[in-house]
């Protein structure tokens, strides 16, 4: 009770001093006393691209031909054996799946329309493309 009374007195005294100009108001309302400024926004709107739906999925991989396409990230041999391991997995676990491994022409950022055409014309049912990173 005594502590509460002392605290109350201290607040009254501080307020009186502030009103009398003896304690800077900025000490009580630090931010509110600072002037506001308006600045320009450095960011620029990014535009989203049109949405393209995915191709319908397969019911099953049984009997299907899957192309594994190496995009050459890190060089032609950097990740190629990942695709060989995937092929080995299918050979062990679902030999009805026909796996075809291809290297994309050019470096990873370049398009390869000839390969996409080849996959379509040779009856590719699906494709795994990678591996970046």
């Amino acid at each position: 009770m005594k502590k509460k009374l002392l605290l109350c007195c201290a607040v009254i005294v501080a307020t009186a001093l502030a009103l009398a100009g003896l304690v800077p108001l900025t000490a009580q309302k630090k931010d509110a006393a600072k002037p506001l400024i308006t600045v320009l926004n450095p960011a620029i709107e990014s535009k989203m691209v049109d949405r393209i739906p995915l191709s319908p999925r397969l019911d099953t991989l049984d009997g299907k031909t899957i192309y594994l396409v190496d995009i050459n990230w890190g060089g032609p041999d950097a990740a190629y054996s990942v695709f060989e391991e995937i092929k080995a997995w299918f050979a062990q676990n679902n030999p009805s799946v026909n796996i075809v491994i291809k290297r994309k022409a050019g470096m990873y950022t370049m398009d390869d329309p000839a390969l996409w055409k080849e996959i379509k014309e040779k009856g590719g049912d699906a494709a795994l493309i990678g591996i970046s990173g």
Partner: peptide, 20 residues
């Protein structure tokens, strides 16, 4: 399955709200 125009991107106003 969505195709066509995407949602509008975040608008960047020329001026930001006043601040200290």
């Amino acid at each position: 399955k969505i195709s066509g125009r995407p949602p509008e991107a975040k608008v960047e106003p020329r001026l930001l709200q006043p601040m200290t």
